[in-house]
Design a protein around this nucleic acid. Structure first.
Lengths: 374, 374
DNA sequence: GATTGTCAGGCAAGCGCTTTCCTGGGCAGC
DNA sequence: GCTGCCCAGGAAAGCGCTTGCCTGACAATC
C-alpha cells in the first residue's frame, strides 16, 4: 500500500508538501510541485490511510447509529433520514445492528467510542430493564464527558437530545378509531413486553378505551416478537382464546401483516368480520390486501431530525422533539359486525360471553372522520 | 478521552504493560499489576482508540460492502447473510449505499480502501458502461495489489471471486412457466436497461419464449426504476399500449408489487384476467394479495457465501459460485384467460392485433408442474 | 550593501497504540 | 562467591499522517 512518503519521494518533495497538496491546504504550493504530487498520486493509486489521518487530526468525522435491525422497514426508513442529513454534512455513517440484544447494544457503544465517532445515535425502543439502563447511561455519559454527542430516537431512558414518536398518543388514536367504528371486543397483538415502545402504545390504547368505559383484559393482549411471524403467532393465540373478537390491533405493521396472513389462512374476512389496524405506516402497508389502516409515524423525518440534533453542537439543555402520530385509514378496518364474526373452527359455537353493547345501528361509527386517509 | 498512558500512569506501570494486560498478550504479567491495570481501565472508562490500534497493528479487521440500498429488501437479505458470516469471524461490517450511482460506487471503493478494510464486497447489478467498468476494475486491481480481497455478488465485470445468482436461468423459468399456463401476450416490467441484472433476466426470458416460437417485441418491455413506483409506472404504460396482455413479468418483486397495486387500482383481477410474476422472492412476496408467484434467489445464502469467499485467503484461480433460481408458485399466476382480459378504459375496444394462438382449451397449462410451491 | 519582509518548502513533533528488544534482579549451578 | 540464565517489565521505535514552526532564498527598502 503506497504511503504519503512514497508519493513525496516520487514527486521529489517532502511529505509535508505532498500532504498539503492532497488535502488542499491553505498553505500555498507552487503550481509545478502541485502537479508533480498529483501525478505521483495518480501513478501510485495513492489513497490516504484514514486511520492515520484520524489519529493525526483530532477532528472526528464519522457518526455511529445503533438500530435493532436495518432490514426491518421501520429502521430502514429511519436510517434513510439519518443518512440524508449525514451525507449532506459530509459525515460517514456507521450502522450497527443490535438485533434487539441489550448486551450487543452496550458493546456497540464501546466500539463506536473506539472508532472516535463524533456522535452516537440510538434508534429504537428502550428496555424495561433497570440494570441495563444504568449501564447504558454510564457508558453514554462517559462518552459525552469526552465531547461525544448522543441523540436517541424513541427512548425515554436517556436524558439528552431525543426525538420521540408519540407512541402513546398513537395508541389513543387507535382506541378512538376502533371505538367509533363500534368495536368492543378488541384483541392486541403486541411486541415484547420488555420494550418501552410496546408498553407506550398499549398504555395509550388502554387510556382511550378506558375513556369510553372499556377495559382491555390481559388475556386479550398477546406478546410475541415484533415481526411478521410474531404477528401470526399472537393472532392465532388471540383468536383461539377469543373467537368473538371484532378487531385486532397490531402494535406494529410487521405484526399486522402477520395478522392479515393468519386471518386469510383461516378465511376470516377483513374487515367484514375482523378489522385489523397496525402501527408505523411502513411503505408496504399500502400494498398488502386489504391495504392496512395504521398509525403513521414520520419515520424518515425522525431520522433526519435525530441526526440534526446529534450534529448540532447543542444547547445546554437537552432538546426533546415529539413527533405526532396520525391515523391513516385504508381498507383493513371497518364497522364492527353485529354478529359473532368468527365461526370457531370445529368447536361448537362458543357462547358469545362478551358484553358487546347493541352498537350503533346502521354500522359504521357515528361519523367516520374522513372517507379515506393518506 | 482517556488514553493508554493515562491508564498506565494511574496503574503505576508502563504503557507497554498496560497494553499487554488489556489485549491479553501472551507475555506474562504479574497478577498484581494486571489487577491494577484493569482497575484503572474501569475507573477511567478507558476504551482503546481503534484508529491508533489499526495503525499500530498491521492487521486489518473490518470488511466493507457496497450495496445499492440496504433498505431495499433484496439487499437487506443479502446483507443479513454477509453480517452473519462476518460476525462469526469477528469482523466489523461497514455498509455503504451507492443508491445506484456509479460514481458514488467508485468513491466508496476509495473510502473503504482508506479505511484499510480486509475485503470489499460489491453487491448488486453491474452496469452496461465500459468506462465505469474499466475505472472500477482499475481501482479494485489497485486494492487487490496491496493484499485487499474482493468478492462480487451478481456482477460479471470483475474477474475475481464471485457469487452469481442465475438470473438468466431464472428468466428462462419464467418464460417456461407462463408458456405452460397458456400465456402468449406477455409484457415485461423491467428495471433500468443499464443494469446487467435487467438484461440477464430479460435475455433468459427471451430465450425460453423463443424456444416456443414466441418473440418479445420491444414495445412490450418497459424500463423504469427497480422499485415499487417504477413497477406502477411501467405497468401502466404497458397496459395503456397493449390492453390485451394476459401476463406481466416484473423483473424484481418490488416492481411486481407496484404492478399488483396498479392492476388493483384499475380493477383488473389477478390472476383471472392478468397473471403477474416477480423475481427474487423477497419476504413480503408471500404476504401481498394475491401472494406473489416469483423466482426465488437464495439471497441470504448469497451474502453468506460472498463473505466466506472474501475472507478466505483464496485459491489462485478466481472462484465463481453460481446459485440456482427456482420458481415459487403462489397465487398471482394462473391460466391465461381465453378472451381479451382488460377492458380498455374509455377508448373504444382496441383491435386485438395480437397473434394469440387458440390456446389449449380448458385453461391452465398442459400440466402445472406442481400444485403449490414454497 | 546591509536590513528587513515575504514566502515556498522542509523539519520534526506528535496523534495513541503495539511490539521488539533490552535491562536488571533473582535464582540455580559450579 | 561468581557466572550464567530466566523472566517480568520498561524504553523506544515505529504505524502513516498533519501542522506549527523554522529556514533559506529572494525582493524590496533605506
Amino acid at each position: 500500500m503506497a504511503t504519503l512518503s512514497d508519493v513525496a519521494r516520487r514527486a521529489g518533495v517532502s511529505p509535508a508538501t505532498a500532504s498539503r497538496v492532497i488535502n488542499g491546504s491553505s498553505k500555498p504550493v507552487t503550481e509545478e510541485l502541485r502537479e508533480r504530487v498529483l501525478r505521483a498520486v495518480a501513478e501510485l493509486q495513492y489513497v490516504p490511510n484514514a486511520h492515520a489521518q484520524l489519529l493525526a487530526r483530532s477532528h472526528r468525522v464519522a457518526v455511529g447509529v445503533i438500530v435493532h435491525d436495518v432490514s426491518d422497514p421501520y429502521f430502514a426508513e429511519i436510517t434513510r433520514g439519518l443518512q440524508r442529513v449525514a451525507t449532506d454534512q459530509g459525515r460517514l455513517l456507521m450502522i450497527c445492528n443490535s438485533y434487539r440484544d441489550p448486551d450487543r447494544e452496550l458493546e456497540y457503544v464501546e466500539l463506536l467510542r473506539g472508532q472516535q465517532v463524533a456522535a452516537i445515535i440510538l434508534a429504537g425502543s428502550g428496555y424495561h430493564d433497570a440494570t441495563f439502563t444504568r449501564l447504558l447511561n454510564e457508558k453514554l455519559a462517559a462518552y459525552e464527558a469526552t465531547g461525544g454527542r448522543v441523540a436517541v430516537i424513541g427512548r425515554h431512558e436517556h436524558s439528552g437530545d431525543a426525538v420521540m414518536p408519540d407512541n402513546r398518543a398513537g395508541g389513543r388514536l387507535i382506541g378512538a378509531e376502533l371505538y367509533e367504528l363500534g368495536h368492543r371486543a378488541i384483541g392486541v397483538v403486541a411486541g415484547p413486553a420488555v420494550l418501552t415502545t410496546t408498553t407506550d402504545r398499549l398504555t395509550g390504547l388502554r387510556e382511550s378505551l378506558a375513556a369510553h368505559g372499556l377495559s382491555l383484559p390481559e388475556h386479550r393482549v398477546r406478546h410475541a416478537e415484533f415481526d411478521r411471524d410474531g404477528g401470526v403467532a399472537a393472532t392465532a393465540a388471540l383468536l383461539d382464546a377469543d373467537p368473538e373478537l371484532t378487531a385486532i390491533v397490531a402494535l406494529n405493521d410487521s405484526m399486522a401483516i402477520g395478522a392479515l396472513a393468519l386471518l386469510r389462512s383461516r378465511s376470516v374476512a377483513v374487515p367484514r368480520q375482523v378489522s385489523v389496524i397496525g402501527f408505523d405506516d411502513m411503505p408496504i402497508a399500502r400494498d398488502v390486501t386489504p391495504a392496512l389502516t395504521t398509525v403513521r409515524l414520520p419515520l424518515v423525518d425522525m431520522g433526519a431530525r435525530a441526526m440534526s440534533l446529534a450534529l448540532d453542537p447543542g444547547a445546554a439543555a437537552p432538546r426533546v422533539e415529539v413527533l405526532p402520530a396520525e391515523v391513516v385509514r385504508r381498507d383493513s378496518t371497518g364497522p364492527a359486525p353485529e354478529v359473532t364474526p368468527v365461526r370457531p373452527r370445529g368447536a361448537g359455537s362458543a357462547a358469545p360471553a362478551d358484553s358487546r353493547p347493541p352498537a350503533a345501528a346502521g354500522g359504521g361509527g357515528p361519523s367516520r372522520p374522513s372517507p379515506r386517509g393518506g
